[in-house]
Simulated scan of single mutants.
Amino acid sequence: MSSQQDKVYIEIIRELNHIIQEDELTNGDKLPSERELSERLNVGRSSVREALRSLELLDLIETRRGEGTFIKSIGGHRLVEVLASFFLREKKARNDLAETRKIVEIEGLRLACERIDQTKLDKLAFLIVQSKISWENGEFPVEEDYLFHKTIVEACHNRLLLNIWISLVEYSKVALRESLSREGRPEQSILEHEQIYAAIKNRDEKQAIIALKTHLENSRF
């Protein structure tokens, strides 16, 4: 496949991901038609068809004759992982993602230190406990980790900032499990969460930012 064809494929996949996120599509939902994708991207329908066929071969979508193309019920979560793999293949893309997430999350944390309520504080504490339980049961606390950070940004009460954060971290969730799989990392990550939580609870913005920066840096691999 030529470099130009590669770029077309990536653009088609980017558009599919955008549609899935914006329209909150989930398992079993219908994707736009080949014609609609072709018009949105200003590319030939044959390129769209080939990209969709590739996703179908990966068992992520299915085409029903006379009905259209749908996200496969068993492949919804895997679709996000495959999409992420396209964006995170290059080191520069991973570094850009980590740097941008850090900027957004730190600003969210600043606001959260001022605006967080008891409900969100309780949720952070609960997620730390759940992380420990998961790890004691031999499971990497991937979802708890994700929700801990999401709760912090939610607590800033800025919906746009939250949406930006979600769009960034949805890709890095794929790498989160690999990060937590490093020896000793789950225990250390939970300890770092406890330090972040304590600083937020005390409304200590300076210490909270220091703790978050340390945590994000240690989470990279």
Score class of each variant (00 low, 15 high):
residue 10 I to Y: 13
residue 96 D to R: 09
residue 203 R to D: 03
residue 61 I to G: 04
residue 141 P to F: 11
residue 6 D to A: 03
residue 60 L to S: 07
residue 56 E to K: 06
residue 41 L to N: 02
residue 207 Q to F: 00
residue 22 E to Q: 15
residue 16 L to T: 10
residue 179 S to P: 09
residue 95 N to P: 00
residue 212 L to N: 08
residue 71 I to V: 15
residue 163 N to K: 11
residue 187 E to H: 11
residue 120 K to Q: 12
residue 59 D to A: 13
residue 57 L to T: 10
residue 143 E to C: 03
residue 180 L to W: 10
residue 87 F to N: 07
residue 207 Q to P: 00
residue 209 I to V: 15
residue 100 T to H: 12
residue 202 N to C: 05
residue 27 N to I: 13
residue 209 I to E: 15
residue 151 T to I: 07
residue 7 K to R: 14
residue 100 T to P: 10
residue 97 L to D: 08
residue 163 N to V: 05
residue 162 L to N: 01
residue 60 L to Q: 11
residue 154 E to G: 01
residue 195 Q to P: 00
residue 67 E to S: 07
residue 144 E to W: 04
residue 171 Y to N: 11
residue 155 A to S: 15
residue 137 N to W: 05
residue 210 I to L: 11
residue 58 L to Q: 14
residue 160 L to H: 11
residue 18 H to L: 06
residue 21 Q to C: 10
residue 189 S to P: 01
residue 103 I to N: 03
residue 209 I to G: 04
residue 215 H to E: 07
residue 128 I to M: 03
residue 178 E to C: 02
residue 118 Q to K: 12
residue 177 R to Y: 07
residue 96 D to W: 14
residue 93 A to R: 12
residue 69 T to H: 05
residue 69 T to D: 08
residue 207 Q to S: 09
residue 13 I to G: 00
residue 177 R to E: 14
residue 192 E to G: 03
residue 55 L to R: 05
residue 24 E to W: 14
residue 87 F to H: 12
residue 33 S to D: 11
residue 126 F to P: 01
residue 26 T to E: 13
residue 137 N to H: 15
residue 209 I to K: 05
